[in-house]
Computed example of a mutant assay.
Amino acid sequence: MGFLEDIFGKKQKQDDKINNSFQRIHDNLSHHNEWIKYLHNNTAKIWENTKELDNRHIRHKQDVFNNIKQINAWIEYLHNNHKELELEISNIENNIKEMIKQDLKKYHEELFLYLEEIAASRINPNELKQEIFDEIDKKDAEKESKTHFVTRETPASYKKKLSGGEQDLLNFLFNEDAPLTYEDISRKMGKSINSIRVYMNSLKSKRDIIDEFKKPNGQKIFSIKNKEKIRTLYNIN
């Protein structure tokens, strides 16, 4: 009996070892199977990513090709229209030069007219001399003997029916040689431009002794008429 028990005991141990070996093999196979599934899934994902990258690369190549094609079209357009653009630029330059030339011509004409007006507004020595002699010839001996030089002051006859502001403006203009603008008169007299305008308009309506001109820029300039200055200078009534 003891012998049989030993035999059966050994056999049982061998069976247990075999079963354990098969179990380990089974476990290893299961583990390998899981790894195979994992690698298969990752391989599928890698394939999908690779395919997406390929598609992106293809689209990028197409975009680059389209951009290059468009750039080539622009280069061809600019090349074909280069002479036309040069001609257009040349025409624009010529038009600008012509406009500047016309503007300068107009400016010179207006400047010339302005200088003529300024020259005409000043007392010409020869004209002044002739006017003086003409006035003196009209005087009789008694008045001629009383003629004397006086300072430039507004005659008393001009001061009649004039306001204080009008009289001040008249006295001021009698003592100025060159024509002046509203701004010049306002600055020198220390009065507002609006006040000078009112005095000037009122004075012109009461006495015909103011010469009025316009500069090329449209500004008005004023001065006492030459004849009135002569009358005042030599106390001629």
Rank of each mutant, 00 (worst) to 15 (best):
N194Q: 13
I100C: 00
E116P: 03
Q219T: 14
E109C: 08
I7E: 04
I25R: 10
N28G: 10
K215G: 03
I71H: 06
N235F: 03
H82V: 04
I132N: 04
Q70N: 08
S121K: 11
L4R: 09
S21E: 05
N95S: 12
E166W: 01
R56V: 02
Y107R: 15
K191W: 00
D140P: 06
A73L: 10
K45Y: 05
N94H: 10
K13F: 04
Y199Q: 07
N124G: 09
K61Y: 06
Q12V: 11
N235E: 09
I230P: 02
K129G: 05
Y234T: 06
N66T: 03
H31F: 11
F174Y: 15
L111M: 14
L162K: 10
R24G: 02
K61N: 14
R207C: 01
F213A: 14
T147E: 02
L162E: 05
K204N: 01
E116C: 09
E93S: 10
A178Y: 08
G190F: 01
M189W: 04
Q130V: 06
E117L: 06
R231T: 01
S90K: 14
N126T: 08
N19D: 07
G2A: 13
D134V: 01
L111D: 07
R187F: 04
K188V: 04
K139A: 06
K229Q: 03
L180K: 15
K37S: 11
R152C: 06
Q167D: 02
K69F: 00
N20G: 14
K105M: 10
I193W: 00
A44H: 06
K191C: 00
K83C: 03
E48D: 07
E76M: 05
E183I: 13
E84S: 14
N126M: 06
N49E: 11
A73P: 00
E166Y: 00
N20F: 13
I123C: 03
R24H: 09
F222H: 13
N20M: 11
Q102A: 10
L53S: 10
S21P: 00
H31C: 09
M1W: 02
P125D: 01
L173T: 09
H57E: 09
D63N: 13
A156N: 07
K227H: 11
Y114H: 15
N235C: 08
M1Y: 01
I7R: 11
F3N: 08
I46S: 07
N41S: 11
P179E: 04
L169V: 03
N175D: 02
L203V: 06
H148W: 00
N49W: 08
A119W: 08
K159Y: 01
L113A: 09
F222E: 07
S223R: 14
K214L: 08
K161E: 09
R197K: 15
F222G: 12
I18E: 05
L39R: 11
Y107E: 13
K143G: 01
R59D: 11
I193Y: 03
K227M: 10
A141V: 12
I36R: 14
N33F: 03
S223D: 01
D54R: 15
G165Q: 06
T43E: 06
S205G: 00
I224S: 07
I136G: 01
P216E: 02
S195L: 02
A119G: 12
E86P: 02
D184N: 15
D140Q: 08
K139I: 04
D140N: 15
S202H: 09
D63L: 15
S186M: 00
I221F: 06
N81D: 07
I100A: 02
